[in-house]
Design a binder for these strands. Structure first.
Lengths: 185, 185
DNA sequence: CTCAATTGATTGACGCGTAAACTAAAAATG
DNA sequence: CATTTTTAGTTTACGCGTCAATCAATTGAG
């Protein structure tokens, strides 16, 4: 049976086909807009969102971390991480260091310069969070986070984890996963 | 209330710096995860999220649209639109057409092939929306959309429109969200 | 009318995400 | 011990977003 006129008509001028679509699009749109603001902020300090992301992960860890562990905590797939690390290393914000035990793994650490840079971003970043959604009441913020967390439950159940490429080890659902840290788009 | 999903996912030992940060990060994270799902769906049909976005905009308009008007309705900046249009044209999904009055202007239309392709994506896409947030109640969906729209108000007021590059015409705040249509990250 | 400013659109350079193919080291298997 | 398999990481190729610079058509000021 062909598509049907009813469906076509509903689609034609209705702003949204369903409340589900409306919500999903709202999530995407809001994240995009907010992401642009954060990207602008990071760029003032010479960083892209992804680069900031890596630095945050490394600062949070406090000690050298294998490169793939960094990738695991970002949404990004693995291959892209190499160039990212390259650039950060060239900027002097992080340092590579090959493991002696297992010479395949490359550890990455944040340098003092990297920590300094992050330190200068901390306050403006908090202020931006505040500017963007500070006008929501505490109740609204709580409810918003609750709804978004509930929304993401549909991903866990279907095994639809973000990181493609390989789902090596730690396949267990909801292991103590240090997820992505930042905001970048 | 238990620790909260995002907090656990981030394995942040301390609490969030602020409820504002928690909410902002939740928005970004949810959009990222959902975006991956949609990107996968579109890719099954040979489309990237951006390409799908352009096609949706053109179908919604129903008539030829100047290239910059397409860019306006996407988050993307202007220069990137050219290559995007190039590829879609090469795929036979849209058509370019130079204006006769103002020979600087290039109009873009969706072809029948483009419409057909979109038609085949419609149902699976709706199903995906459903799968991703169908488990929220109507009340919750309404509330989620309301909160996200309210969150975005902070952007309108400060003139922080997404599209950089040039902020030519149509500066009007929040015209009936004819804005970007898709989901891509 | 002429010349400068504006506007629509494109190009080039760079960073990033992702799929695919590849190298090298370690682990598993026989 | 030799061979296969797995794993860490890189390279390559392509699509896309963004900035800076450019070109051509149009508009505006004098």
């Amino acid at each position: 049976m062909p598509p049907g006129r009813l469906q076509r008509e509903l689609k034609k001028r209705g702003p949204f086909a369903s409340p589900e679509q409306e919500a999903t699009l709202n999530i995407a749109r809001t994240a995009d807009r907010f992401g642009i603001c954060f990207a602008r902020l990071f760029r003032e300090y010479g960083l892209t969102p992804s680069q900031y992301n890596v630095l945050r992960i490394l600062r949070g860890e406090g000690k050298p971390l294998p490169i793939l562990d960094v990738a695991d905590r970002m949404i990004a797939a693995v291959p892209g991480i190499t160039g990212l690390i390259d650039r950060l290393e060239r900027m002097g914000l992080i340092a590579r260091e090959r493991s002696t035990e297992d010479r395949r793994v490359v550890y990455v650490t944040i340098t003092d310069a990297g920590l300094d840079l992050l330190g200068t971003i901390d306050k403006p970043e908090a202020a931006l969070h505040q500017r963007l959604i500070g006008h929501l009441s505490p109740d609204e913020l709580r409810e918003l986070s609750r709804l978004l967390e509930k929304a993401r439950q549909s991903l866990d159940q279907t095994g639809d984890r973000g990181g493609s490429y390989r789902w090596h080890k730690t396949m267990g659902p909801s292991h103590p996963d240090n997820g992505p840290r930042s905001i970048g788009r």
